[in-house]
Simulated assay, not measured.
Amino acid sequence: MRILIIEDNPDIVANLYEYFEPLGHQLDNARTGYAGLIRAAEQRFDVIVLDGMLPGLDGLEVCRRLREEQQCNAPVLMLTARDTVHDKVAGLRAGADDYLVKPYSLIELEARLDALVRRVRVSGPDPVLRFGELQLDTGTFEARRAGQRLELARFGYKLLAALLRAAPRLVTREELEQELWKDEPPLSDALRSHIYALRQAVDKPFPSSRPMVVTVAGIGYRLVDDDASE
């Protein structure tokens, strides 16, 4: 499992790493609610362990933003000292999938995370394609970079989906033309125009960030990201 831990207590974080890493799980950690939102937008996780009491944004607000703003579909388990029925109901209504009260058993936590991930895998693949700061919900055709919604034309969505599915690998011009026009590509170099429009939507609104849509001269195009493994 790829597990994101949004928790500000260093002892709890160290305890979770000590337990889960030897089992072969990959962990990442954010110490604040804002940092957790950035991590969740930049990378794909199988499950998120979310503390209820965080500096900056509390766990309830983080969970709401994950669901409503970032359209994050990863299961969320809230791990918190708040133990009233009202607290549990508030967490579930904010978008959490499960709720575990501190102090807790690591074995029970592992079992609950396994169950959440298993439930998602049975229900079908995640409809959201992600790479670095980019994500595209193939069900709603909503695209975002760093949480900011992108305005794309119809061909822009198709191009972005093809590049996201392959990322960080290169996609040839022929493959992209097949994606857009099947076996009847236009005589003009229309692909270049659609790639230009995609860059305008994906890269231009972020002048301080590295462009993500890159041309490999004479071959095709690919997505790049400084923080994504290639």
Rank of each mutant, 00 (worst) to 15 (best):
I3V: 14
L4F: 09
E7C: 08
N9F: 07
N15D: 12
Y17G: 05
E18C: 07
L23A: 14
G24I: 05
L27C: 15
N29S: 13
A30M: 09
A30S: 15
R31G: 03
R31L: 13
T32F: 11
G33L: 01
Y34H: 10
G36E: 03
L37E: 02
A40C: 12
A40I: 06
E42H: 15
R44E: 14
F45Y: 15
I48N: 03
G52R: 00
G56K: 12
G56L: 13
G56P: 12
D58S: 07
V62F: 01
L66T: 04
E68V: 15
Q71P: 03
A74K: 02
A74F: 05
L79I: 15
L79N: 07
T80V: 14
T84Q: 08
V85H: 04
D87M: 06
A94W: 01
G95R: 02
D98Y: 00
Y99E: 01
V101T: 14
K102A: 10
Y104I: 02
Y104M: 05
Y104S: 03
E110G: 12
D114H: 12
A115M: 10
A115R: 12
R118I: 03
V122A: 14
G124V: 09
D126E: 13
P127S: 10
R130P: 02
F131N: 04
F131P: 01
E133S: 11
L134Y: 08
R144Y: 09
R144E: 10
R145G: 03
G147W: 01
L150M: 10
E151W: 07
A153P: 01
A153W: 03
A153N: 13
F155V: 01
L160K: 04
A161D: 11
A161V: 06
A162D: 07
R165F: 06
A166T: 10
R169V: 02
L170K: 09
L170W: 04
V171Q: 00
T172Y: 07
Q178K: 09
L180K: 04
L180E: 02
K182N: 10
E184H: 06
P185M: 13
D189S: 14
R192D: 01
R192A: 02
A201C: 10
K204M: 09
P207H: 06
S208L: 10
T215N: 13
V224Q: 12
V224W: 02
D226H: 10
A228D: 00
S229T: 11
S229L: 14
E230M: 11
